[in-house]
Computed example of a mutant assay.
Amino acid sequence: MKHSVTKFTSLKVALKELKPFIKDGTHLQSGRPFTLFGGMRSREALANWLICAVLNFEYKAEKYFFTSDPTGADGIVVNSETGATWLTEHVMVPQLRNSRERNKDIVTRVVEAVNSKRDKGGLAYASGKQLVVFLDDCRGEWRPNEVAKQLPQPLYFEDVWVAGLQIADAGEYCYGITQLVSAYENAPTWTLNINRGFEAWSIHRIQ
């Protein structure tokens, strides 16, 4: 049975629509879900957009986009050439809220977030899905290879992505994106810079 989904006509259009939410960090943390996108939150839409952008960069083709998910997950990443789809589940690592959390480094907090989603429903819940961690805490050094080594086994999820703001300066925004589960020794990591006008972006692969 086919389901009706909502999508943007392009990643450029999506970025323009996401602009006010990117500029308003509070909405990314706790803003209301988008009814037209099946309850997807602004931070989930942004993270899905970032993943599609880096995949298009890697494959040198504009073939990845995201849609709403009528089955209840947090969005679907779609390969327009093959028709392959990835269901996504999202979790946020929030900004520090108390002294107990201040004693944890960012690696520990990301691993704890992954474990919380994995333990939510086990294999039945996670199987076939991509887990996306939205990192709202940019404190400390990001060590993706160390996080990858500490992921629980079995993971149940197909893959784990981490995306978060690194710096905002003079109206431009720089995000970091990492794919933690891969065949590479170094977890693939990119930076994505959104220009001041929100009509273009540039991507650099770090490792």
Results as ranks from 00 to 15, higher is better:
M1V: 12
H3R: 06
T6H: 06
F8C: 15
V13H: 14
V13C: 07
L15H: 10
L18A: 11
K19I: 12
K19L: 15
I22P: 12
I22W: 15
K23I: 12
D24V: 09
H27T: 13
H27K: 10
Q29S: 03
G31Q: 06
R32V: 01
P33T: 02
F34G: 07
F34N: 10
T35E: 15
F37C: 03
M40L: 12
R43S: 13
E44R: 03
L46G: 12
N48P: 09
I51E: 05
C52I: 07
C52R: 02
L55T: 03
N56D: 12
E58I: 06
Y59S: 04
K60E: 15
F65P: 00
S68T: 02
D69P: 10
P70E: 01
P70W: 13
P70A: 00
T71V: 02
A73F: 03
I76T: 06
V77I: 05
V77P: 06
N79S: 08
N79Q: 10
S80H: 03
E81W: 05
A84D: 04
T85K: 15
E89C: 01
E89H: 03
H90C: 11
V91E: 00
M92V: 03
M92S: 11
V93L: 10
Q95W: 02
Q95D: 15
L96D: 02
L96Q: 09
R97I: 03
R97P: 00
R97E: 07
R97D: 05
N98F: 14
R100F: 06
K104H: 11
K104V: 05
D105T: 09
V107S: 11
V107L: 13
R109S: 08
V110I: 15
E112I: 04
D119Q: 09
K120S: 10
L123R: 11
A124H: 11
Y125A: 08
K129F: 04
Q130D: 08
V132L: 00
L135C: 01
R139G: 01
E141N: 12
E141Q: 14
E146R: 09
A148E: 05
K149I: 05
L151K: 06
P152T: 08
P152A: 08
P152Q: 05
Q153N: 09
Q153S: 13
E158Y: 07
W161A: 00
G164T: 12
L165C: 15
I167P: 04
I167H: 04
A168W: 05
A168D: 09
D169N: 08
A170P: 02
A170E: 13
E172L: 00
E172Q: 15
C174F: 03
C174N: 12
C174W: 04
G176P: 10
I177R: 14
L180K: 00
Y184A: 09
N186L: 12
L192V: 09
N193L: 15
G197A: 15
G197K: 08
E199V: 02
W201Q: 08
I203M: 11
I206Q: 14
Q207P: 14
